[in-house]
């Protein structure tokens, strides 16, 4: 057996999609968070997918995690975290976009599960060859 098998390809893709799902969960959990400084404000986490080739086979890996978006400055003098000018910074998370990403992630994950179970069925049939 050489290189990546179908199980490796689908398994790595599932792991990558789970990383993405975890990032979405973090983003949604922090959607409403407020910070007193621009640096301290939460920025949406996004995994950067990269193709990994092994001969004819290709699978996917998470190359890095990116922080995206710019926190919005809001005037809220009564907020306990407000700075000297009475401003706070809202987390750079768009809940709508996160929900769309979540659905896409779930679908991609399910597709890979289907690949895995089909490959498993074929491998089991191949094991029984000649019987």
């Amino acid at each position: 057996m050489k290189g990546l098998s179908t199980f490796d390809i689908a398994g790595r893709a599932m792991a990558s999609q789970l990383v993405r799902m975890n990032a979405i969960a973090s983003n949604l959990a922090n959607a409403g968070s407020i910070s007193g400084t621009e640096q301290g404000a939460y920025r949406a986490l996004r995994p950067v997918f990269a193709t990994r080739y092994d001969g004819a086979a290709a699978t996917v890996d998470v190359a890095s995690m990116a922080r995206t978006g710019t926190p919005e400055r809001k005037l809220d003098p009564h907020h306990p975290l407000a700075d000297a000018t009475g401003h706070v910074w809202q987390a750079a998370v768009d809940p709508n976009q996160e929900m769309v990403e979540m659905v896409e992630t779930a679908r991609a994950y399910a597709n890979n599960v289907e690949v895995l179970s089909t490959a498993r069925g074929l491998a089991l049939d191949t094991l029984r060859i000649g019987k």
Binding site: L4, S5, T6, I9, A10, R12, A13, S16, Q17, R20, F49, A50, T51, A56, A57, A58, T59, V60, E104, T105, A108, N111, N112, V115, A119, L122
Partner: peptide, 13 residues
């Protein structure tokens, strides 16, 4: 099978 599995794995790359 492996090539198409690779395509499906990279659907969002």
């Amino acid at each position: 099978l492996d090539v198409i599995a690779g395509n499906i794995a990279n659907a969002s790359t």
